[in-house]
């Protein structure tokens, strides 16, 4: 992974869960990892929910001082530019859709600088089981809308096609073609395809599968 990874996508594509998984994976290899909760549009189910899990794994969590409070305002009370210059890896979990990606727009200059040094990725998380982004056309339309407000272009796709608690290995296997189509039309590679970590790894030729643990669960499943 590069120094900075930005995670974007549709509401419900699983951005937060992918961010948490990537952070844990890096932390397990002994790397210093910081996760930024840059979600300014969603006030339920966000990375700031994982304070304890991150602390246990030595991951630093940066989130708005208003995250998970009743203050319904899109505040960013931290300095992303400084965080990008800090030691270690930075994962930025962005809010859903183009509305959420608006928060990225103001960092165009530092992001371009990192890009010039090949130090930044922006991954677009896709989910073909998700209503309204279930076709390649819909997924691409949203991807371009996100790039428009983010003022930055994606460098890869994470195919995180899932049906929430009903996700099986078959869900992941069935979604491979969808990922390939989005990748082909967008002109950027599929970085990995996710599958439920509790299942056996599926084998499809030429497809990179990565086990993903589901951390974003309702209170009654925790």
């Amino acid at each position: 992974m590069k120094k900075v990874t930005i995670i974007t996508g549709h509401y419900g594509s699983g951005k937060t869960n992918i961010s948490v998984n990537l952070a844990l994976e890096l932390a397990k290899t002994g790397e210093r990892v910081t996760v930024v909760d840059l979600d300014i549009v969603n006030y339920y189910f966000r990375t700031a929910d994982f304070k304890k899990l991150f602390a246990e794994n030595g991951i630093e969590l940066i989130s708005s001082m208003y995250a998970n409070t009743n203050l319904d305002i899109p505040a960013i009370s931290f300095d992303i530019e400084r965080l990008c210059r800090d030691e270690g890896y930075l994962i930025i979990d962005v809010g859903g859709d183009d509305a959420g990606a608006t928060a990225l727009g103001r960092y165009k200059e530092p992001f371009e600088e990192l890009k010039a040094n090949n130090q930044i990725d922006m991954f677009y998380v896709i989910n073909c089981c998700r209503y309204l982004t279930s076709t390649s056309e819909e997924a691409l339309e949203l991807m371009y809308e996100i790039e428009e407000t983010a003022r930055f272009k994606h460098t890869g796709i994470v195919n995180n096609s899932n049906l929430g608690t009903e996700t099986t290995v078959q869900t992941a296997v069935d979604a491979v073609e969808f990922g390939k189509e989005v990748s082909k039309n967008a002109g950027i590679p599929v970085i990995f395809n996710s599958y439920p970590a509790e299942s056996e790894k599926p084998e499809v030729e030429g497809v990179n599968f990565k086990p993903v643990i589901n951390f974003v669960k309702p209170i009654w499943e925790q």
Partner: peptide, 14 residues
């Protein structure tokens, strides 16, 4: 077909 939806979206689509 099953698809993943947010509660509020499901109310609206229904």
């Amino acid at each position: 077909e099953r698809s993943l939806m947010k509660g509020n979206e499901a109310l609206a689509e229904a």
